[in-house]
């Protein structure tokens, strides 16, 4: 009786959140799908009507599409490799007792709070600029004419460095939190039984961290699939298509080229890609709800 009443109240309290999220999910998604099958180019307003799969065909056969997919994968995998492996090592290091532990933690964490446009511009100008950047100055001090032209010669690698710098703190912080919940007695017991450092790591520490590592990888993948600001303010996708990723190609198609239909088709492809990752992430998080 009381529960009947409180259930109704609960439903009432939940409905605004569900309502706005439902609208937020359905309206843009439906519009993206709709536009992706329409002829809709802001430069040719008289050409309208059903386009069938044309937009998808144009997007997939665009000379930039192959590069965009490849760069998206390289960017995601590159940053994941650096941040996950680096994060595990850093977490293990910061978990050891030493003087000033708290301060070092703050230093390592800091890049995560730097807004993407600041991070990208600072790396581009103050560090990677071959003449006036920090690395350029170092190279000149060793007698070189100019430093390595990061953004010209290795644009994708440079973007990976910038993004990894921002996400390494995230991985480290979460893995460190997981590490600190490890039962110390288990480690000590293994030590007494004669297990070396390596086997302690492989058989006790790593299994304990598996969940956290999975979560780090999946959450980062969601964010890394949509890296945009870093590319916009540094390379603009270039030179050529060297640092173009999928979100950036969608932006180029729909906003710069004014082809709304083609951009929408690219958007649908991006959504499908993200949902494949999301499926696994949701399963990993959902398991935690049971307990």
């Amino acid at each position: 009786m009381a529960t009947q009443h409180s259930r109704a109240a609960a439903r009432l309290m939940i409905s605004p959140a569900v309502g706005v999220l439902l609208i937020w999910m359905i309206v843009p998604l439906a519009m993206t799908l709709w536009f992706s099958f329409q002829q809709y180019n802001l430069l040719y307003p008289d050409r309208t009507g059903f386009a069938g799969w044309d937009n998808y065909r144009y997007f997939v056969t665009d000379f930039r599409f192959g590069a965009a997919i490849r760069n998206t994968l390289v960017l995601v995998l590159g940053v994941l490799a650096i941040t996950t492996i680096g994060g595990i090592l850093l977490a293990l290091l910061l978990d050891q007792p030493f003087r000033g532990q708290g301060i070092v933690r703050l230093l390592v964490l800091a890049p995560f709070f730097v807004m993407p446009t600041v991070s990208a511009l600072v790396w581009k100008n103050m560090f990677m600029n071959p003449v006036n950047g920090f690395f350029g100055h170092i190279a000149q001090a060793f007698g070189a004419q100019a430093g390595f032209d990061f953004l010209g010669q290795a644009p994708l690698m440079s973007v990976i460095i910038m993004v990894a710098w921002q996400w390494l703190p995230f991985a480290t912080l979460i893995l460190l939190t997981a590490l600190q919940s490890l039962d110390r007695e288990q480690i000590e017991a293994a030590e007494m039984d004669g297990a070396g450092a390596w086997s302690r790591f492989v058989y006790i520490v790593l299994p304990h961290m598996t969940r956290a590592i999975t979560v780090v990888i999946l959450i980062q993948t969601i964010f890394l699939l949509s890296v945009y600001a870093e590319i916009l303010v540094t390379t603009n996708g270039g030179p050529g298509t060297a640092s173009l990723n999928l979100p950036f190609l969608v932006y180029l198609a729909s906003i710069v080229d004014n082809d709304v239909g083609m951009g929408a088709a690219g958007g649908v492809i991006a959504i499908i890609l993200a949902n494949i990752v999301a499926f696994f992430l949701m399963r990993a998080i959902g398991k935690n709800l049971e307990t």
């Binding site: 993206t32 729909s254 958007g267 991006a270 959504i271």
Partner: peptide
Amino acid sequence: FVPGRRTKDLLMWMLSTKMMPAAGVLVP
């Protein structure tokens, strides 16, 4: 405080809206 049968599904669904890439809905 008043969890129902659907609460877990509802939470997961809310989370799923976060997975939509911005580029996907940029146009609309």
